[in-house]
Design a protein around this nucleic acid. Sequence first.
DNA 1: GTGTAATGTGAGCCATCCTCATATTTGTTA
DNA 2: TAACAAATATGAGGATGGCTCACATTACAC
Lengths: 217, 217
Amino acid sequence: MDQDETDRSKEAGEQSAVRRTPSQRRSRERVERMLAAAVTLIERDGSDAMRMSDVAETAGVSIGSLYQYFPDKMAIVRSLAERCMIEGRSCVETELAKVQTCDELLQSWSSLVDSYYQMFLTRPVMRDIWCATQSDCRLRELELEDSRINARVLADVMARLKPDGERAQLEAVAFLIMQLCEATMRLAVSVDAAEGERLVETYKRMGISALRAALAR
Amino acid sequence: MDQDETDRSKEAGEQSAVRRTPSQRRSRERVERMLAAAVTLIERDGSDAMRMSDVAETAGVSIGSLYQYFPDKMAIVRSLAERCMIEGRSCVETELAKVQTCDELLQSWSSLVDSYYQMFLTRPVMRDIWCATQSDCRLRELELEDSRINARVLADVMARLKPDGERAQLEAVAFLIMQLCEATMRLAVSVDAAEGERLVETYKRMGISALRAALAR
DNA sequence: GTGTAATGTGAGCCATCCTCATATTTGTTA
DNA sequence: TAACAAATATGAGGATGGCTCACATTACAC
Protein backbone atom coordinates (compact mmCIF):
# COMPACT_ATOMS: atom_id res chain seq x y z
CA MET A 1 0.00 0.00 0.00
CA ASP A 2 2.72 2.34 0.97
CA GLN A 3 4.62 0.98 -1.98
CA ASP A 4 1.65 1.74 -4.13
CA GLU A 5 1.50 5.37 -3.05
CA THR A 6 5.17 5.87 -3.64
CA ASP A 7 5.00 4.45 -7.12
CA ARG A 8 2.02 6.48 -8.08
CA SER A 9 3.57 9.69 -6.87
CA LYS A 10 6.77 8.93 -8.74
CA GLU A 11 5.09 8.48 -12.08
CA ALA A 12 2.19 10.86 -11.77
CA GLY A 13 4.29 13.67 -10.32
CA GLU A 14 1.09 15.00 -8.91
CA GLN A 15 -0.74 13.69 -5.87
CA SER A 16 1.73 12.71 -3.18
CA ALA A 17 0.76 15.76 -1.22
CA VAL A 18 -0.41 12.98 1.05
CA ARG A 19 1.61 9.93 1.80
CA ARG A 20 -1.24 7.71 2.87
CA THR A 21 -4.76 8.37 1.67
CA PRO A 22 -7.06 8.75 4.65
CA SER A 23 -9.94 6.41 4.03
CA GLN A 24 -11.79 6.41 7.31
CA ARG A 25 -13.76 9.41 8.40
CA ARG A 26 -11.68 9.76 11.55
CA SER A 27 -8.44 10.20 9.61
CA ARG A 28 -10.00 12.49 7.02
CA GLU A 29 -11.10 14.80 9.80
CA ARG A 30 -7.67 14.67 11.34
CA VAL A 31 -6.02 15.64 8.06
CA GLU A 32 -8.37 18.61 7.88
CA ARG A 33 -7.38 19.58 11.39
CA MET A 34 -3.71 19.39 10.43
CA LEU A 35 -4.23 21.67 7.44
CA ALA A 36 -6.30 24.09 9.51
CA ALA A 37 -3.57 24.17 12.15
CA ALA A 38 -1.00 24.89 9.45
CA VAL A 39 -3.07 27.81 8.17
CA THR A 40 -3.31 29.25 11.67
CA LEU A 41 0.42 28.96 12.26
CA ILE A 42 1.41 30.25 8.83
CA GLU A 43 -0.83 33.28 9.26
CA ARG A 44 0.79 33.95 12.61
CA ASP A 45 4.49 33.38 11.87
CA GLY A 46 4.92 32.39 8.26
CA SER A 47 5.63 28.96 6.86
CA ASP A 48 9.37 29.12 7.50
CA ALA A 49 8.86 29.63 11.20
CA MET A 50 6.11 27.03 11.37
CA ARG A 51 7.38 23.95 13.21
CA MET A 52 6.04 20.51 12.50
CA SER A 53 5.77 19.87 16.22
CA ASP A 54 3.56 22.94 16.56
CA VAL A 55 1.33 21.87 13.71
CA ALA A 56 0.88 18.51 15.39
CA GLU A 57 0.19 20.05 18.76
CA THR A 58 -2.23 22.66 17.40
CA ALA A 59 -4.08 19.99 15.43
CA GLY A 60 -4.15 17.79 18.52
CA VAL A 61 -2.32 14.91 16.88
CA SER A 62 1.12 13.44 17.26
CA ILE A 63 4.13 14.16 15.09
CA GLY A 64 3.92 10.65 13.75
CA SER A 65 0.37 11.15 12.53
CA LEU A 66 1.40 14.27 10.69
CA TYR A 67 4.02 12.30 8.83
CA GLN A 68 1.54 9.56 8.05
CA TYR A 69 -0.20 11.95 5.69
CA PHE A 70 2.45 14.46 4.68
CA PRO A 71 5.85 13.19 3.57
CA ASP A 72 7.53 16.41 4.61
CA LYS A 73 6.88 19.92 5.75
CA MET A 74 6.61 21.37 2.29
CA ALA A 75 3.90 18.89 1.40
CA ILE A 76 1.58 20.70 3.78
CA VAL A 77 2.20 24.01 2.08
CA ARG A 78 1.81 22.36 -1.31
CA SER A 79 -1.46 20.89 -0.25
CA LEU A 80 -2.77 24.30 0.78
CA ALA A 81 -1.46 25.82 -2.43
CA GLU A 82 -3.22 23.22 -4.55
CA ARG A 83 -6.52 24.05 -2.92
CA CYS A 84 -6.03 27.73 -3.67
CA MET A 85 -5.17 26.98 -7.27
CA ILE A 86 -8.19 24.77 -7.79
CA GLU A 87 -10.39 27.46 -6.34
CA GLY A 88 -8.76 30.08 -8.54
CA ARG A 89 -9.14 28.05 -11.70
CA SER A 90 -12.79 27.57 -10.99
CA CYS A 91 -13.23 31.35 -10.69
CA VAL A 92 -11.40 31.96 -13.95
CA GLU A 93 -13.44 29.39 -15.82
CA THR A 94 -16.75 30.64 -14.50
CA GLU A 95 -15.97 34.27 -15.22
CA LEU A 96 -14.58 33.73 -18.70
CA ALA A 97 -17.27 31.28 -19.79
CA LYS A 98 -19.81 34.02 -20.33
CA VAL A 99 -17.56 36.25 -22.40
CA GLN A 100 -18.84 37.02 -25.91
CA THR A 101 -17.06 40.18 -27.01
CA CYS A 102 -13.67 41.76 -26.67
CA ASP A 103 -15.01 44.40 -24.32
CA GLU A 104 -16.61 41.76 -22.18
CA LEU A 105 -13.29 39.93 -22.02
CA LEU A 106 -11.47 43.02 -20.82
CA GLN A 107 -14.22 43.62 -18.30
CA SER A 108 -14.19 40.06 -16.99
CA TRP A 109 -10.45 39.92 -16.82
CA SER A 110 -10.28 43.18 -14.97
CA SER A 111 -12.78 41.98 -12.42
CA LEU A 112 -10.89 38.70 -11.99
CA VAL A 113 -7.75 40.61 -11.17
CA ASP A 114 -9.64 42.69 -8.64
CA SER A 115 -11.12 39.74 -6.82
CA TYR A 116 -7.80 37.94 -6.88
CA TYR A 117 -6.19 40.94 -5.24
CA GLN A 118 -8.94 41.00 -2.63
CA MET A 119 -8.23 37.35 -1.88
CA PHE A 120 -4.60 38.15 -1.21
CA LEU A 121 -5.56 40.97 1.08
CA THR A 122 -8.11 39.02 3.08
CA ARG A 123 -6.24 35.73 3.29
CA PRO A 124 -2.70 36.42 4.50
CA VAL A 125 -1.83 32.75 4.22
CA MET A 126 -1.91 33.09 0.44
CA ARG A 127 0.91 35.55 0.41
CA ASP A 128 3.11 33.17 2.35
CA ILE A 129 2.24 30.23 0.18
CA TRP A 130 2.96 32.15 -2.98
CA CYS A 131 6.35 33.12 -1.59
CA ALA A 132 7.13 29.56 -0.63
CA THR A 133 6.38 28.66 -4.21
CA GLN A 134 9.63 30.23 -5.31
CA SER A 135 11.83 28.06 -3.15
CA ASP A 136 10.16 24.74 -3.83
CA CYS A 137 10.70 23.06 -7.14
CA ARG A 138 7.55 20.96 -7.04
CA LEU A 139 5.45 23.91 -6.03
CA ARG A 140 6.93 26.02 -8.80
CA GLU A 141 5.92 23.37 -11.27
CA LEU A 142 2.43 23.30 -9.82
CA GLU A 143 2.14 27.04 -10.22
CA LEU A 144 3.45 26.93 -13.76
CA GLU A 145 0.96 24.22 -14.59
CA ASP A 146 -1.79 26.24 -12.98
CA SER A 147 -0.87 29.27 -15.06
CA ARG A 148 -0.78 27.16 -18.18
CA ILE A 149 -4.26 25.82 -17.51
CA ASN A 150 -5.63 29.28 -16.89
CA ALA A 151 -3.75 30.57 -19.92
CA ARG A 152 -5.37 27.90 -22.05
CA VAL A 153 -8.80 28.95 -20.84
CA LEU A 154 -8.02 32.56 -21.59
CA ALA A 155 -6.51 31.66 -24.95
CA ASP A 156 -9.68 29.71 -25.79
CA VAL A 157 -11.72 32.84 -25.32
CA MET A 158 -9.22 34.88 -27.28
CA ALA A 159 -9.31 32.34 -30.10
CA ARG A 160 -13.09 32.61 -30.20
CA LEU A 161 -12.75 36.37 -30.58
CA LYS A 162 -9.99 36.11 -33.17
CA PRO A 163 -10.36 32.83 -35.05
CA ASP A 164 -7.43 33.56 -37.37
CA GLY A 165 -5.00 34.23 -34.51
CA GLU A 166 -1.97 32.00 -34.15
CA ARG A 167 -2.69 29.75 -31.20
CA ALA A 168 0.86 29.56 -29.80
CA GLN A 169 1.08 33.32 -29.86
CA LEU A 170 -2.21 33.76 -28.05
CA GLU A 171 -1.19 31.27 -25.41
CA ALA A 172 2.16 32.92 -24.86
CA VAL A 173 0.46 36.23 -24.22
CA ALA A 174 -2.12 34.63 -21.96
CA PHE A 175 0.52 32.70 -20.03
CA LEU A 176 2.63 35.77 -19.43
CA ILE A 177 -0.40 37.76 -18.34
CA MET A 178 -1.27 35.05 -15.82
CA GLN A 179 2.23 34.81 -14.43
CA LEU A 180 2.69 38.54 -14.23
CA CYS A 181 -0.57 38.62 -12.33
CA GLU A 182 0.99 36.40 -9.66
CA ALA A 183 4.04 38.61 -9.63
CA THR A 184 1.99 41.75 -9.33
CA MET A 185 0.04 40.30 -6.41
CA ARG A 186 3.20 39.28 -4.58
CA LEU A 187 4.50 42.76 -5.15
CA ALA A 188 1.31 44.61 -4.30
CA VAL A 189 0.96 42.95 -0.92
CA SER A 190 4.60 43.77 -0.09
CA VAL A 191 4.09 47.51 -0.28
CA ASP A 192 1.63 49.78 1.45
CA ALA A 193 -2.03 49.61 0.47
CA ALA A 194 -2.15 52.79 -1.59
CA GLU A 195 0.89 51.86 -3.66
CA GLY A 196 -0.37 48.29 -3.96
CA GLU A 197 -3.63 49.44 -5.41
CA ARG A 198 -1.91 51.72 -7.88
CA LEU A 199 0.32 48.86 -8.99
CA VAL A 200 -2.65 46.60 -9.55
CA GLU A 201 -4.27 49.35 -11.59
CA THR A 202 -1.13 49.83 -13.64
CA TYR A 203 -0.90 46.09 -14.19
CA LYS A 204 -4.51 45.99 -15.35
CA ARG A 205 -3.83 48.73 -17.87
CA MET A 206 -0.78 46.85 -19.16
CA GLY A 207 -2.74 43.63 -19.38
CA ILE A 208 -5.62 45.30 -21.16
CA SER A 209 -3.37 46.81 -23.76
CA ALA A 210 -1.60 43.49 -24.20
CA LEU A 211 -4.91 41.71 -24.71
CA ARG A 212 -6.10 44.43 -27.10
CA ALA A 213 -2.87 44.19 -29.07
CA ALA A 214 -3.08 40.41 -29.27
CA LEU A 215 -6.68 40.56 -30.47
CA ALA A 216 -6.24 43.48 -32.84
CA ARG A 217 -6.57 42.89 -36.54
CA MET B 1 33.32 47.75 17.27
CA ASP B 2 30.94 44.88 17.16
CA GLN B 3 28.52 47.08 19.04
CA ASP B 4 29.04 49.72 16.43
CA GLU B 5 28.19 47.38 13.60
CA THR B 6 25.05 46.20 15.27
CA ASP B 7 23.86 49.70 15.91
CA ARG B 8 24.56 50.85 12.42
CA SER B 9 22.77 47.90 10.88
CA LYS B 10 19.79 48.47 13.13
CA GLU B 11 19.30 52.06 12.13
CA ALA B 12 20.49 51.95 8.55
CA GLY B 13 18.70 48.74 7.69
CA GLU B 14 21.28 48.29 5.01
CA GLN B 15 24.87 47.07 5.38
CA SER B 16 25.14 44.32 7.96
CA ALA B 17 25.71 41.79 5.23
CA VAL B 18 28.95 41.52 7.15
CA ARG B 19 29.19 41.28 10.88
CA ARG B 20 32.76 42.49 11.22
CA THR B 21 34.31 44.67 8.55
CA PRO B 22 37.51 43.07 7.29
CA SER B 23 40.14 45.76 7.49
CA GLN B 24 43.32 43.87 6.84
CA ARG B 25 44.15 42.57 3.39
CA ARG B 26 44.29 39.00 4.66
CA SER B 27 40.73 39.04 5.89
CA ARG B 28 39.42 40.86 2.82
CA GLU B 29 40.84 38.12 0.66
CA ARG B 30 39.31 35.49 2.89
CA VAL B 31 35.88 37.07 2.60
CA GLU B 32 36.24 37.00 -1.17
CA ARG B 33 37.13 33.33 -1.00
CA MET B 34 34.04 32.66 1.11
CA LEU B 35 31.79 34.40 -1.40
CA ALA B 36 33.42 32.60 -4.29
CA ALA B 37 32.94 29.28 -2.53
CA ALA B 38 29.29 30.12 -1.97
CA VAL B 39 28.82 30.85 -5.67
CA THR B 40 30.36 27.52 -6.58
CA LEU B 41 28.16 25.61 -4.16
CA ILE B 42 24.98 27.49 -5.06
CA GLU B 43 25.57 26.87 -8.74
CA ARG B 44 26.00 23.18 -7.99
CA ASP B 45 23.18 22.47 -5.54
CA GLY B 46 21.24 25.65 -4.89
CA SER B 47 21.37 27.87 -1.84
CA ASP B 48 18.99 25.74 0.21
CA ALA B 49 21.24 22.72 -0.07
CA MET B 50 24.37 24.76 0.52
CA ARG B 51 25.79 23.95 3.95
CA MET B 52 27.77 26.45 5.93
CA SER B 53 30.32 23.78 6.74
CA ASP B 54 30.83 23.19 3.01
CA VAL B 55 31.26 26.87 2.30
CA ALA B 56 33.91 27.03 4.99
CA GLU B 57 35.69 23.96 3.72
CA THR B 58 35.57 25.03 0.07
CA ALA B 59 36.88 28.46 0.98
CA GLY B 60 39.58 26.88 3.11
CA VAL B 61 38.53 28.62 6.30
CA SER B 62 36.93 27.48 9.50
CA ILE B 63 33.25 27.68 10.34
CA GLY B 64 34.07 30.28 12.92
CA SER B 65 35.72 32.57 10.39
CA LEU B 66 32.64 32.38 8.21
CA TYR B 67 30.52 33.59 11.08
CA GLN B 68 32.98 36.37 11.82
CA TYR B 69 31.90 38.04 8.63
CA PHE B 70 28.41 36.77 7.93
CA PRO B 71 25.89 36.76 10.77
CA ASP B 72 23.95 33.93 9.21
CA LYS B 73 23.62 31.85 6.11
CA MET B 74 21.24 34.23 4.37
CA ALA B 75 23.70 37.09 4.77
CA ILE B 76 25.96 35.37 2.26
CA VAL B 77 23.19 35.18 -0.30
CA ARG B 78 22.24 38.77 0.44
CA SER B 79 25.79 39.86 -0.08
CA LEU B 80 25.91 38.19 -3.48
CA ALA B 81 22.52 39.66 -4.37
CA GLU B 82 23.66 43.17 -3.48
CA ARG B 83 26.62 42.87 -5.81
CA CYS B 84 24.34 41.80 -8.66
CA MET B 85 22.00 44.68 -7.99
CA ILE B 86 24.79 47.25 -7.94
CA GLU B 87 26.10 45.88 -11.20
CA GLY B 88 22.61 45.94 -12.69
CA ARG B 89 21.93 49.51 -11.64
CA SER B 90 25.14 50.61 -13.19
CA CYS B 91 24.10 49.01 -16.50
CA VAL B 92 20.70 50.68 -16.38
CA GLU B 93 22.17 54.08 -15.65
CA THR B 94 24.78 53.86 -18.36
CA GLU B 95 22.34 52.64 -20.98
CA LEU B 96 19.60 55.15 -20.21
CA ALA B 97 21.93 58.14 -19.84
CA LYS B 98 22.33 58.49 -23.59
CA VAL B 99 18.64 58.36 -24.40
CA GLN B 100 17.29 61.45 -26.18
CA THR B 101 14.10 60.36 -27.92
CA CYS B 102 11.19 58.05 -27.27
CA ASP B 103 12.40 55.60 -29.89
CA GLU B 104 15.84 55.55 -28.35
CA LEU B 105 14.28 54.81 -24.98
CA LEU B 106 12.37 51.85 -26.34
CA GLN B 107 15.54 50.67 -28.06
CA SER B 108 17.70 51.02 -24.96
CA TRP B 109 15.15 49.42 -22.72
CA SER B 110 14.74 46.51 -25.06
CA SER B 111 18.47 45.93 -25.17
CA LEU B 112 18.69 46.15 -21.38
CA VAL B 113 16.10 43.41 -21.08
CA ASP B 114 18.03 41.29 -23.52
CA SER B 115 21.32 41.60 -21.72
CA TYR B 116 19.64 41.01 -18.39
CA TYR B 117 18.18 37.80 -19.75
CA GLN B 118 21.59 36.77 -21.00
CA MET B 119 22.99 37.35 -17.53
CA PHE B 120 20.42 34.99 -16.05
CA LEU B 121 21.26 32.37 -18.64
CA THR B 122 25.01 32.57 -18.23
CA ARG B 123 25.12 32.98 -14.44
CA PRO B 124 22.96 30.27 -12.89
CA VAL B 125 23.67 31.62 -9.44
CA MET B 126 21.46 34.60 -10.20
CA ARG B 127 18.40 32.47 -10.61
CA ASP B 128 18.91 30.93 -7.22
CA ILE B 129 19.53 34.26 -5.57
CA TRP B 130 16.43 35.76 -7.10
CA CYS B 131 14.38 32.85 -5.82
CA ALA B 132 15.83 33.18 -2.35
CA THR B 133 14.73 36.77 -2.47
CA GLN B 134 11.15 35.71 -2.04
CA SER B 135 11.67 33.91 1.22
CA ASP B 136 13.86 36.49 2.91
CA CYS B 137 12.31 39.66 4.19
CA ARG B 138 15.50 41.71 4.12
CA LEU B 139 16.35 40.55 0.64
CA ARG B 140 12.87 41.37 -0.56
CA GLU B 141 13.29 44.88 0.72
CA LEU B 142 16.64 45.15 -1.01
CA GLU B 143 15.10 44.07 -4.28
CA LEU B 144 12.20 46.48 -3.89
CA GLU B 145 14.63 49.29 -3.18
CA ASP B 146 16.69 48.26 -6.19
CA SER B 147 13.62 48.37 -8.40
CA ARG B 148 12.66 51.73 -7.01
CA ILE B 149 16.08 53.15 -7.79
CA ASN B 150 15.99 51.79 -11.31
CA ALA B 151 12.42 52.99 -11.69
CA ARG B 152 13.46 56.47 -10.68
CA VAL B 153 16.18 56.48 -13.31
CA LEU B 154 13.73 55.29 -15.92
CA ALA B 155 11.13 57.78 -14.75
CA ASP B 156 13.71 60.55 -15.04
CA VAL B 157 14.18 59.73 -18.69
CA MET B 158 10.44 59.49 -19.20
CA ALA B 159 9.98 62.85 -17.53
CA ARG B 160 12.52 64.38 -19.88
CA LEU B 161 10.55 63.03 -22.82
CA LYS B 162 7.22 64.13 -21.39
CA PRO B 163 7.76 67.14 -19.15
CA ASP B 164 4.05 67.57 -18.40
CA GLY B 165 3.61 63.96 -17.21
CA GLU B 166 2.57 63.33 -13.65
CA ARG B 167 5.67 62.12 -11.85
CA ALA B 168 3.95 59.62 -9.53
CA GLN B 169 2.24 58.04 -12.49
CA LEU B 170 5.44 57.72 -14.46
CA GLU B 171 7.21 56.16 -11.52
CA ALA B 172 4.43 53.67 -10.91
CA VAL B 173 4.66 52.50 -14.50
CA ALA B 174 8.44 52.35 -14.35
CA PHE B 175 8.42 50.48 -11.06
CA LEU B 176 5.99 47.87 -12.29
CA ILE B 177 7.95 47.42 -15.49
CA MET B 178 11.10 46.81 -13.45
CA GLN B 179 9.46 44.33 -11.12
CA LEU B 180 7.72 42.48 -13.89
CA CYS B 181 11.08 42.22 -15.56
CA GLU B 182 12.37 40.31 -12.54
CA ALA B 183 9.30 38.13 -12.62
CA THR B 184 9.66 37.45 -16.31
CA MET B 185 13.30 36.46 -15.86
CA ARG B 186 12.47 34.09 -13.03
CA LEU B 187 9.79 32.61 -15.22
CA ALA B 188 11.80 32.48 -18.41
CA VAL B 189 14.65 30.54 -16.84
CA SER B 190 12.17 28.04 -15.37
CA VAL B 191 10.90 26.87 -18.73
CA ASP B 192 12.70 25.55 -21.76
CA ALA B 193 14.87 27.92 -23.79
CA ALA B 194 12.47 28.37 -26.70
CA GLU B 195 9.52 29.19 -24.49
CA GLY B 196 11.71 31.37 -22.31
CA GLU B 197 12.78 33.44 -25.27
CA ARG B 198 9.22 33.83 -26.46
CA LEU B 199 8.15 34.99 -23.01
CA VAL B 200 10.90 37.58 -22.90
CA GLU B 201 9.79 38.79 -26.32
CA THR B 202 6.19 38.99 -25.19
CA TYR B 203 7.27 40.86 -22.09
CA LYS B 204 9.24 43.32 -24.18
CA ARG B 205 6.21 43.98 -26.33
CA MET B 206 4.06 44.55 -23.25
CA GLY B 207 6.66 46.84 -21.76
CA ILE B 208 7.05 48.80 -24.96
CA SER B 209 3.35 49.40 -25.25
CA ALA B 210 3.18 50.38 -21.59
CA LEU B 211 6.00 52.87 -22.06
CA ARG B 212 4.42 54.21 -25.26
CA ALA B 213 1.07 54.60 -23.50
CA ALA B 214 2.66 56.38 -20.55
CA LEU B 215 4.52 58.76 -22.84
CA ALA B 216 1.69 59.34 -25.28
CA ARG B 217 0.15 62.75 -25.50
C1' DG C 1 59.81 43.57 22.58
C1' DT C 2 55.51 44.27 24.51
C1' DG C 3 50.74 45.03 24.49
C1' DT C 4 46.47 45.43 22.20
C1' DA C 5 43.36 44.83 18.68
C1' DA C 6 42.17 42.03 14.91
C1' DT C 7 41.56 37.68 13.25
C1' DG C 8 41.14 32.51 13.22
C1' DT C 9 39.61 27.92 15.10
C1' DG C 10 36.50 23.87 15.70
C1' DA C 11 34.26 21.07 19.28
C1' DG C 12 29.94 20.99 20.50
C1' DC C 13 25.23 23.13 21.68
C1' DC C 14 20.71 23.15 20.12
C1' DA C 15 16.65 23.40 17.30
C1' DT C 16 14.14 21.02 14.08
C1' DC C 17 12.93 17.65 10.60
C1' DC C 18 11.75 13.11 10.17
C1' DT C 19 11.82 7.75 11.20
C1' DC C 20 10.49 3.63 13.18
C1' DA C 21 9.20 0.17 16.41
C1' DT C 22 5.34 -0.28 18.91
C1' DA C 23 0.50 0.54 20.55
C1' DT C 24 -4.29 1.42 19.66
C1' DT C 25 -8.51 1.60 17.01
C1' DT C 26 -11.60 0.17 13.39
C1' DG C 27 -13.86 -2.86 10.39
C1' DT C 28 -14.80 -7.68 8.98
C1' DT C 29 -15.73 -12.40 9.21
C1' DA C 30 -17.48 -16.41 11.42
C1' DT D 1 -19.27 -11.45 20.36
C1' DA D 2 -14.69 -13.07 19.64
C1' DA D 3 -10.86 -13.10 16.79
C1' DC D 4 -8.20 -11.28 13.31
C1' DA D 5 -6.25 -8.08 9.89
C1' DA D 6 -5.86 -3.64 8.21
C1' DA D 7 -5.74 1.01 9.20
C1' DT D 8 -4.34 4.43 12.13
C1' DA D 9 -1.81 6.71 16.09
C1' DT D 10 2.18 7.56 19.03
C1' DG D 11 6.49 9.90 20.67
C1' DA D 12 11.25 8.83 21.91
C1' DG D 13 15.17 9.53 19.59
C1' DG D 14 18.35 9.56 15.28
C1' DA D 15 20.28 12.72 11.96
C1' DT D 16 21.26 16.97 10.15
C1' DG D 17 22.95 21.44 9.93
C1' DG D 18 22.93 26.34 11.64
C1' DC D 19 25.37 28.82 14.86
C1' DT D 20 28.17 29.98 19.45
C1' DC D 21 31.91 30.69 22.36
C1' DA D 22 36.07 30.12 24.85
C1' DC D 23 40.40 30.07 23.43
C1' DA D 24 44.57 30.33 20.00
C1' DT D 25 47.05 32.87 16.70
C1' DT D 26 48.50 36.77 13.91
C1' DA D 27 49.19 41.67 12.72
C1' DC D 28 50.23 46.17 13.99
C1' DA D 29 51.51 50.31 16.83
C1' DC D 30 54.75 52.30 19.86
